[in-house]
Design a binder for these strands. Structure first.
Lengths: 95, 95
DNA sequence: TTCACAAATTCACATATGTAAATATATATA
DNA sequence: TATATATATTTACATATGTGAATTTGTGAA
């Protein structure tokens, strides 16, 4: 990655409390837990379009991945991406 | 204040390309390198008030520390804070 | 095909943010 | 003290952002 624009976009995706709550609820990549978007909306107390909007932002920077089956969308956190982001940040500003 | 609010504030501070460039230029806590605000402005090609503004945001969340002597302000990156942020993020969303 | 439901998109609007310009404050030196 | 310089604050404004409401798209079942 190693460019400040990409990194700032990822930090911007993480800079909203509701999106952090979304990440907290979502299963991590590989886990068998599954939550559809409407269940997320219910759990978070916000509208379904709002959840979709936040998920779109998280997905646009690769922080979550989406799989669809039986009419539902199941999102999962991409933990590797988060680890990479922090490694890149340290490399970028420490060297 | 809940944990996600504090964390999102720190991510927001990191979500601007110019602020990442500031962190890249600043010495890390403990280094002997020193850069005054006007030198930063010169290096970044932006105005001095703009640099002060970005530094204020970084300082408000503890990502940089400031020391003054001989009329100059010298800022330094607080790397520990960054490490803590990532540990907290992982603890928050992985458990 | 039709219907029902899940998810995404669009629109509207209030709030937040980054930046330039002007001004104010602080500090060192003469 | 007065003056020059470094830094911080204020103001203004255009753009970006988060959210609700309404709508649209997509998908599976009947």
């Amino acid at each position: 990655m190693s460019n400040v624009d990409e990194m700032s976009d990822m930090f911007k995706a993480l800079s909203d409390p509701m999106r952090l709550k979304v990440l907290k609820l979502l299963p991590k990549h590989g886990e068998e837990k599954e939550l559809c978007v409407c269940a997320l909306a219910d759990e978070l107390g916000i509208s379904q379009p709002n959840v979709s909007h936040h998920l779109k932002i998280l997905k646009s920077v690769g922080l979550v991945k989406c799989a669809k089956h039986e009419g539902f969308s199941y999102y999962a956190v991409n933990m590797d991406k988060i680890k990479c982001l922090f490694d890149d940040l340290q490399n970028e500003i420490e060297k």
